[in-house]
């Protein structure tokens, strides 16, 4: 059994989503190799080599792989696939873009968003926005999986795997090209890896109020900022802050939901948080059914008060 893990990174640094997916790979069992596809990505490769439980790190570099666009990345993974029984990636927007392409080229069915490894070929995954959990057995010779990392702890360091370079095939690299990233500049922790998240909903009422009320509390706690789909659709928060089935799936130690009613699709994105706090004027809001601690009241009074007393 050998497993290939397609790493999430930005060339300079390795994302902790890779370390979390590594834990899922270790649970499947077998030798795990990490593939770093990128450009000038030796720093990310060195970081991957230090993770515990890695056999080797494969570094593939080319211009077309700089941003790991789907066509070139899939061609690379397919060129390596013969040596592996399982190919997996964290279910990031990159993993979700690339791996189904790999699966189709290998004529296998992918198992998407694995939340639990039952055995080497059997996995649990959410369907219907997390309202049901499907237990599926993959029958193809090669298993292709994306892993929802919120359910897995990050693998630790302590490894000393070797890094070996391979040539990236040129196939696919003429199909698409990178133009630009318009990334949110922020000093805050990433939503998907934050220990604390302060999230705002439609009750905030405007973009100004969202920033005025949510930001100070997040700053005080060193927390990431999240938002419900309703708040994003209303233009109160940027789309990359959206937590939910159609946004990001998070599992911080502490999730503070301010003015969020708790629609099914939002709950699907945060119900694995360790501790959930809900602040809402409506005491019957569904968010209180999943909250460990709730305060019924006006968030415009409670949230600033909370910030002052911390």
């Amino acid at each position: 059994m050998a497993i290939l893990l397609f790493a999430e990174h930005d060339n300079a640094t390795l994302s902790d989503q890779t370390a979390k997916a590594l834990t899922a790979a270790s649970q499947i069992g077998g030798d795990v190799d990490i593939l770093i596809a990128g450009k000038d990505a030796s720093a990310a490769a060195d970081a991957a080599a230090k993770l515990a439980g890695v056999r080797k790190v494969i570094l593939a570099e080319s211009d077309a792989l700089t941003e790991r666009l789907a066509e070139a990345s899939a061609a690379l993974i397919v060129s390596l696939a013969g040596d592996y029984d399982t190919i997996l990636a964290p279910a990031t927007t990159t993993g979700k873009n690339v791996l189904p392409r790999v699966a189709a080229l290998l004529d296998v069915m992918q198992v998407s968003e694995v939340i639990e490894v039952v055995s080497a070929d059997t996995f649990k995954r959410p369907i219907y926005a997390g309202n049901a959990i499907e237990v599926v057995q993959a029958t193809d010779a090669t298993k292709v999986l994306t892993v929802r990392t919120a359910g897995f702890a990050a693998a630790g360091e302590g490894g000393s795997a070797t890094v070996s370079s391979v040539d990236a095939p040129s196939e696919g690299s003429d199909l698409s090209s990178f133009v630009q990233n318009i990334l949110s500049e922020s000093e805050r922790p990433e939503l998907t890896s934050a220990k604390i998240i302060v999230s705002g909903g439609r009750a905030l009422g405007s973009n100004e109020k969202f920033n005025e009320v949510i930001t100070p509390l997040a700053d005080k706690l060193g927390a990431a900022v999240g938002a419900s789909r309703a708040a994003v659709d209303a233009g109160y928060a940027a789309n990359d802050l959206q937590v939910g089935q159609t946004g990001k799936v998070v599992a911080p130690d502490l999730y503070i939901a301010c003015g969020i009613s708790g629609a099914i699709q939002h709950l699907a994105g945060m119900k694995d948080s360790k501790i959930i706090v809900a602040i809402n004027t409506d005491g019957d809001a569904p968010i209180f059914q999943v909250a460990d601690y709730g305060i019924v009241g006006d968030l415009f009074e409670i949230v600033p008060e909370l910030e002052r007393q911390l």
Binding site: Q180, N181, S184
Partner: peptide, 12 residues
């Protein structure tokens, strides 16, 4: 729509 924000690409 990508994890960190938006990404523009050109596709054939």
């Amino acid at each position: 729509e990508v994890d960190g924000g938006l990404q523009a690409i050109e596709i054939k």
